[in-house]
Design a protein around this nucleic acid. Sequence first.
DNA 1: TGGTCCATGTAAAACGTTACATGATTCC
DNA 2: GGAATCATGTAACGTTTTACATGGACCA
Lengths: 177, 177
Amino acid sequence: MSLKHSILAILSSEPKTGYQLSKDVEGSIRFFWQATHQQVYRDLADLERSGFVKHKEVTQEEKPDKKVYSITKAGTKELIRWMKEPSEIPATRDSFMIKLFMGHLVGAESLLKDLRNQKQIHENRQNLYRQIEKKYAHPFESLSADQQYMYMTLRRGILLEQAWLAWCQEVEDFLAD
Amino acid sequence: MSLKHSILAILSSEPKTGYQLSKDVEGSIRFFWQATHQQVYRDLADLERSGFVKHKEVTQEEKPDKKVYSITKAGTKELIRWMKEPSEIPATRDSFMIKLFMGHLVGAESLLKDLRNQKQIHENRQNLYRQIEKKYAHPFESLSADQQYMYMTLRRGILLEQAWLAWCQEVEDFLAD
DNA sequence: TGGTCCATGTAAAACGTTACATGATTCC
DNA sequence: GGAATCATGTAACGTTTTACATGGACCA
């Protein structure tokens, strides 16, 4: 339902190509929304059919031609309409929890290996977020209004990863006896 | 990929009907896996074709007949194989984060309403988890091995909801000026 | 008389993943 | 010479969501 809206949101800042959009989705946006380039191209085509975006062909020398997409007035209207809708809490589908839930079937060793791997990933994310925080957000008041909003999404990452790490520690202690 | 494995996991404790399975998925399992009854019925049929579950027709008086599914030996083997596979960190798709990220487009009021609603939901979950913790898990050592594993998944819920609530508070303070 | 629970499904649409496909340039 | 980056897509498949459909029992 809302990769399309994510695309509109990104394009509301500046026009981009499908390629750049899919890079964004693999970049800063990835921590709360992800999609492959195929999805981006398909939804971009759908959005254009709906009149929410339009593109200009840009011929480049020494590089392949590209299509630069921008949001239309109808697209901005749709984006704002969607933004004012109440949001749903995202559904979780965490297969590791099912494995843990039924942990007695396989025992601690196999789960411990899996858990340590997950812990490492959460540690890496935590470090990444902390780095971004240091770089861009030191005096919160000095940030522009736009940046303050973005900073709040970074805080989400930091607080959640902290909780994940605390949980991983508890489970590790339990599994390691 | 793994509603099927979740079904096998639930059936590994006791045989159930498709209806009961979909109730479980809407119940205790819902916090880390969810699915509709349609999905459950379809995957049950697939699992039976693969030989991982089998059913018995049970004729009931005064109630519609039902099919009681149980896991087969091949199903148990498949479940354990899957449980030993490394797990992937689940993908997040949180539309509220996109709305916040682009918050300057709609302003604080509309987001605040949305946020307060989400905070309420997190509070409710937190309370539910705490209640379950009080009821079943007081002296951790007194729990059976199976229950200790399940308790760990409950801890996940408690720690994550705590982080969510802390974050909601930060954002509320920010948005309310 | 209307709503909820039990119990089972079909069908279609929307969304997501994986594989295949092409072709130029730039960097090592 | 090979890998990575820019740039765009098609096709098939898998999963999830939403809508439609039925019918009896029980409760207020």
